[in-house]
Design a protein around this nucleic acid. Structure first.
Ligand SMILES: NC(=O)c1ccc[n+]([C@@H]2O[C@H](COP(=O)([O-])OP(=O)(O)OC[C@H]3O[C@@H](n4cnc5c(N)ncnc54)[C@H](O)[C@@H]3O)[C@@H](O)[C@H]2O)c1
Ligand SMILES: NC(=O)c1ccc[n+]([C@@H]2O[C@H](COP(=O)([O-])OP(=O)(O)OC[C@H]3O[C@@H](n4cnc5c(N)ncnc54)[C@H](O)[C@@H]3O)[C@@H](O)[C@H]2O)c1
Lengths: 250, 250
DNA sequence: CGCGATTTGTGCACGCCTTCACAAGCGCCT
DNA sequence: AGGCGCTTGTGAAGGCGTGCACAAATCGCG
């Protein structure tokens, strides 16, 4: 989820002022919208014109009531007795998420992980485009990866003036992440996706999301540990095929 | 996953010190423990013997009250007026997370991403060890990556009998993920970390966590969209920056 | 034209999580 | 010994999210 909400915790005003184009969606809802969107695309390719909340919920791995409530936050785009128009709903969700406008992404740290990310087509397929790669290692600068040339990190300000970069992805070692974040912020980046295992400090108007594999594994480890300590008296396995899924979370 | 929240283990049994099966920690707390652990290791290397909740909270990017409440769930390992003993707390958290026992991990799908994951030392540094790599592509089988040989996916059952594999990591295309998950479950894996953008269906006793880059980017995109539609100017800068994605309980 | 089947949208209750605020505990200094 | 400052641990309040259950809305059909 997001770490820094709107900065004003004590500011009494707020509330109901923001009427830009859409209401303030619950953070939990926002985190699920991309999942719905993916499910909708799959369904659309399967030839479905409309889909019920039950069906879409199953495809997205969530409760149908939750899905309906989530979608109700965007407005009423369903038809009672029928379901949701797949194409219309895709359009709406993409609009709310701001996916209708191409967003420029830059990637800093073209190492093991960065290399994989640079070639990931999951970026482009959702309106994101990697416009620049950066690294501090002179031996990597100039290298061509998936059609992009690796720039030196010092060139970031200049590249940023040529093209407005909204999102920066950090794939450097943890020790360099804060410095990189500072440079990204200085270059005008307002959203950061951080793969380095460390806490980043950024201005309040910058959003940071973190992906940490080690944390995911440790959470799984805890559940393994717990499961192992319950084997004494398991009480039976339920063979339900119910899928259960952790969300990301945010 | 299932939520058994009956009062089963309640009662007045206070297992304040040491060992056995532990209380049910809130899922939110579990997700933060690894972050505390990382911060503690950093602090420990910095030479600190004790750390206050305020200091540790800052290092982990959370509220200090939250941190204290989280730690209180594990028992009382702090000293009022002084703080927490770094080494002791590390030991306790590692125990609770089950990191004191080495957990065998296997990785399925040695492509772009899988290749990077196979070489990631963030696994080993927390008690995890990749014991096997699998892929379906005959041209990749036999390849040696970071000291490990890539096996064909069909060999999974056999390898699993040689070594108990607790955790499986899926880094295949989405279309193959469910089939791979089924095979992992069949081989006795009870925890899965899924990088493929799809919903997995597994038995109730298997935990699944999902990491989806595209979702992270889309959430950032939403906030970009929102920020762009607000022409107001924000205020100061805050020093928080933890990212944390949350999720629902397993 | 009305009726039943179907599905959305939502009021409501419940439980989890966060955060505040403070008493209790601990060490140190005088 | 006693006071004082510092820090933990926690009770309580409030907010957020979830899921149930149902009224309202819509379609198809006789
Ligand atoms: N490899 C993985 O599977 C994986 C998984 C999860 C998280 N991570 C994390 O992602 C980060 C990168 O991992 P990796 O395995 O790719 O490491 P890596 O060492 O292979 O790559 C790091 C890259 O960052 C570059 N770099 C270093 N300092 C820089 C700076 N100041 N500015 C720009 N570039 C700089 C290096 O030159 C190198 O190319 C690490 O923080 C790691 O913990 C890696
Ligand atoms: N590359 C990235 O940066 C990135 C980032 C996030 C998520 N992902 C996701 O991770 C997954 C892998 O991405 P990638 O870029 O490495 O793809 P890739 O095509 O490079 O690698 C996929 C690998 O899986 C193997 N494979 C296919 N079917 C298999 C099966 N049934 N059993 C075992 N192995 C099988 C393929 O042979 C291939 O080696 C995809 O689902 C992708 O969406 C990738």
């Amino acid at each position: 989820m997001s770490q820094q909400r709107h900065g004003s915790t004590s500011g009494g005003s707020d509330r109901a002022n923001a009427v830009p184009a859409f209401p303030d969606l619950p953070e939990a809802t926002i985190a699920r919208l991309p999942e719905y969107l993916r499910a909708l695309h799959n369904l659309g390719e399967g030839g479905a014109d409309t889909i019920s909340s039950e069906g879409l919920a199953a495809a997205a791995g969530v409760n149908s009531a939750k899905l309906r409530k989530d979608l109700s936050h965007l407005g009423s785009y369903g038809t009672r007795g029928v379901g949701y128009d797949v194409a219309l709903l895709i359009e709406q969700i993409e609009y709310v998420l701001g996916l209708d406008q191409r967003r420029a992404v830059c990637l800093v740290g073209v190492g093991n992980l960065g290399h994989a990310l640079a070639g990931y087509d999951g970026f482009a397929s959702r309106g994101f485009k990697i416009v620049a790669l950066f690294d501090a290692d002179p031996t990597k600068v100039g290298e061509r990866i998936h059609g992009l040339i690796v720039h030196h990190i010092d060139e970031l300000p200049q590249v940023a003036t040529e093209e407005t970069i909204a999102i920066g992805v950090i794939a450097t070692p943890a020790g360099a992440a804060q410095a990189v974040a500072d440079e990204l912020v200085g270059a005008g980046v307002t959203s950061i996706l951080n793969f380095a295992p460390c806490v980043l400090s950024v201005p309040a108007n910058v959003d940071v999301r973190k992906v940490d594999l080690a944390i995911e594994l440790q959470i799984l480890s805890f559940h393994e540990h717990r499961k192992a300590s319950l084997t004494a008296l398991p009480g039976g396995r339920s063979a339900t095929g119910a899928g259960n899924q952790e969300a990301v979370g945010s």
